[in-house]
Simulated scan of single mutants.
Amino acid sequence: MAKEVKAGAKKAKSAMPSVLAFEKKLVPSDAQMFAVNWAERHGKAEGLKLQLKSVRGTISNRLSTTLESDPAKLDAEVEKPNLQTVDHCALPSDCDTLKVRFTLKVLSGVAVPSACNNQDFNDTYREAVEGYIGKTGFTELAKRYASNLANARFLWRNRVGAESIEVVVTHLEGENQTQWTFDAKAVGLHGFDNPAVAALAQVIADSLSGKREFALLEVVAYSRLGQGQEVYPSEELVTVKESKSKVLYETGGIAALHSQKVGNALRTIDTWYDGEARPIAVEAYGAVTNLGMAYRKPTEKKDFYTLFDRFGVGESLTDTEAHYVMAMLVRGGVFGQSSK
């Protein structure tokens, strides 16, 4: 006779499904780039085109010990031409402001995996998510996403050295539109408690928690960089040999940022990894590739899979652990447990 499972009993780790996937709930478009003047920034804008540059550079990489110790060989190495053909993008000489525009769709349905081959897990997972929504209403995550819209984090290098930055977010809802305007520098990149983003955060929270089916936002940022200044679209990953050593991204003939780059900026909300003030992007192992660091190591039991295995089978997590796990589910991905 089969043993009766007590109500509320924890399920074993083997209950994790081998097929488990979640669709992302923050869906940004590519962000196109335009040129305007700050004084007329809300008027007509000119799409930025990529330019081609061919330059002769100098040798500046670290040399071998042999070259460093032989002046004649060093002179010969320096004489070699370092020819480069690169994509380049800059504001026109009569425009001082970069305009960046994209749309963002915020979806509901985080409690429902797009694929799951274990019904028992599906049930306990749904209960865990509904418990999280009932307790928090997604307000903590929503204010962090809203802050990263308002502070223009998605501009990346185009934010650095700007005299002024304005962000206009419009909630498109049929014939009705609600608009918020933010001083990105006043909102700032550190901290997520600015009351200026509260109304926008509520729209995001209502969508993630299922109070509304979705929200469609139009986001426009203006970065006053100076006339003729260089701007920075996304750089393409080149997998085959190219005549150009740097290839920049464009869409519809207009320079742009990848939607993935925009999304990475929006999910740069993880300050829960060890209490540091610097937020990092929500990733399974807390990876920060430019630093070569993983801040959420499985050996320390801080990584997503360790926490999600507990969360998905009904175990309790701390508030910060639950926020991180839910942010990963909003991010989306394939999280099944291999049978190997």
Rank of each mutant, 00 (worst) to 15 (best):
D94C: 06
M1R: 08
F335A: 01
K80S: 00
V197I: 15
A277H: 09
S29G: 11
Y132G: 05
N176F: 08
G336S: 13
N37V: 05
A184G: 13
L329Y: 02
C89F: 10
P28Y: 05
V168A: 04
N82T: 03
L104Q: 05
Q119V: 08
F304Q: 03
E283P: 02
Y125I: 06
E236S: 07
S147C: 11
M16E: 02
L200Q: 02
L107N: 03
C95Y: 00
S18G: 14
L141K: 01
Q177V: 10
D270A: 10
M293K: 15
V330T: 07
K25N: 11
K80F: 00
K143R: 15
K135C: 08
Y295N: 11
E315Y: 11
R331S: 09
V282N: 02
K185I: 13
T103G: 14
Q202H: 07
Q229R: 14
A152R: 00
F121C: 05
V160N: 10
V197P: 00
Q229Y: 04
N117S: 08
Y125N: 08
A221C: 12
G286Q: 09
T97L: 01
D193N: 14
S64N: 11
V313W: 01
N122W: 02
F22L: 13
N264H: 13
L216I: 10
K211E: 12
E315H: 11
E127G: 07
T299D: 15
Q51G: 03
R212A: 02
K99N: 04
T66P: 00
K244E: 08
W156R: 13
L141A: 04
R56V: 02
T178P: 01
T299I: 12
V78S: 01
F138N: 00
K241F: 13
V5E: 12
N117Q: 10
D309G: 13
V219Y: 07
E242A: 13
Q84F: 02
D70F: 07
V27P: 00
V167T: 08
E276W: 11
K211N: 12
D94H: 05
F214W: 07
D94Y: 09
A294K: 14
T320N: 14
G43I: 03
R310K: 14
G286L: 12
